[in-house]
Design a protein around this nucleic acid. Structure first.
Lengths: 205, 205
DNA sequence: AGTAGATTGCACACCGGTGTGCAACGAAGG
DNA sequence: CCTTCGTTGCACACCGGTGTGCAATCTACT
């Protein structure tokens, strides 16, 4: 067992293993995105692998979905904290957030459907911390009169990023068109005036 | 077979039958509202009836759901045409629509979840005509510069009444609070300025 | 060559929901 | 009284997805 580099280069064996594992995850995201009720068999074939192999990496369907969700939470949290400059105006922060969130949201659009249904509870609990971060951001916006206050921050934030996911799930899923539309729409929902919303979007590259 | 009234009074036999049938439908709406994946058995017990009896009225689960959806489409279409005065301003029409839609939306909140999943296709096709009516209304609003144009009317209308259903599905489901919040939120989403939205809502009783 | 580990191709049991068949019960209606 | 019809309580077959067991295979590493 020699390690010829500084980086902990894993043996090609383990790398190949991780490759299949990652491929299964990626493909699962795709397949479930098209049909949230797809079975382990569908995912396996789409990954060019036998059903039994999937169970080798993920003992149960719940494990697979939990892993997927954990991935999503990690990425989205990173995106949010990256965009969040606590002293910045809430509207600008939101724009930066959605801009970075967009491609991720498209990949993980399945979560929107998965929150209802069998594993809803598990997913919900995993998404909890992220939800709180978002609610906090919206709350800040409401406190500084940037966002409207017709709804409590908790619900409003859910609706706002629900809209983003919904648009990511529609025809406009790819291209800059969708990102722009999603940003403006969510800003409107948050109570930002249309002219101001457009100005904010055209500011940030 | 004597009919002692002008109204086609059905025999008490048939009436009792229709009563169970209607009760099943009502209860199904409730049960499925709580858990869209509830089985025929759950619905039956909740209706105080045996599973076999449900199949007596609805040959298949799809039949039940289709009937439910047809009911919803009928009621919602009635509500929409009732609120729609073609020469009125689109914003005011929307407010009147949501006000009347609110209790109905709460009852049929399950449709939101049911559109995805096994019977999505069937439901979608039944909802088609209603969707077109709504898209038409939103289009009118966009043409007269009352609604924003950052999204095509088809998608924007879906999002707008999706938000109404989402709020109807949340904690604020009952009471006037929810209705008001849903109306304002959907107006904001449609691009109506906040002050104007509030004015519109406080106008209509 | 030999071994360890990932993958494969079956097999199987299990589960829950769906839909059906049928005999029996019970109350309205002739 | 006897028929009709909704309801009931079983039984059963069917289906699709889940999860497991195990021997065989292939490939990389020793």
């Amino acid at each position: 067992m020699c390690n010829n580099g500084v980086v902990p280069t894993q043996s090609p064996r383990a790398r190949s293993t991780n490759e299949t594992r990652d491929r299964i995850l990626d493909v699962a995201l795709d397949v479930l995105g098209d049909n949230p009720d797809a079975g382990m068999g569908d995912i396996a074939s789409a990954a060019g692998v036998v059903r039994r192999t999937v169970y080798g990496h993920f003992p149960s369907r719940l494990d697979l979905i939990r892993t997927l969700t954990e991935r999503a939470v990690t990425e989205m949290t990173a995106v949010l904290t990256e965009a969040d400059t606590p002293d910045a105006e809430a509207g600008a922060t939101w724009v930066a957030f959605v801009a970075r969130l967009w491609p991720v949201a498209h990949r993980y659009r399945v979560l929107l459907a998965l929150r209802r249904g069998e594993y809803g509870e598990a997913i919900h609990s995993l998404l909890g911390p992220l939800d709180e971060l978002l609610a906090g951001l919206v709350q800040r916006g409401q406190d500084s009169d940037v966002f409207a206050q017709h709804l409590p921050a908790g619900i409003l934030s859910q609706l706002a990023y629900g809209v983003v996911f919904a648009i990511a799930d529609s025809d406009l899923s790819n291209g800059t068109r969708g990102a722009r539309a999603a940003t403006i729409t969510s800003l409107l929902l948050l109570g930002v005036p249309e002219t101001r919303a457009i100005a904010l979007v055209d500011d940030q590259p």
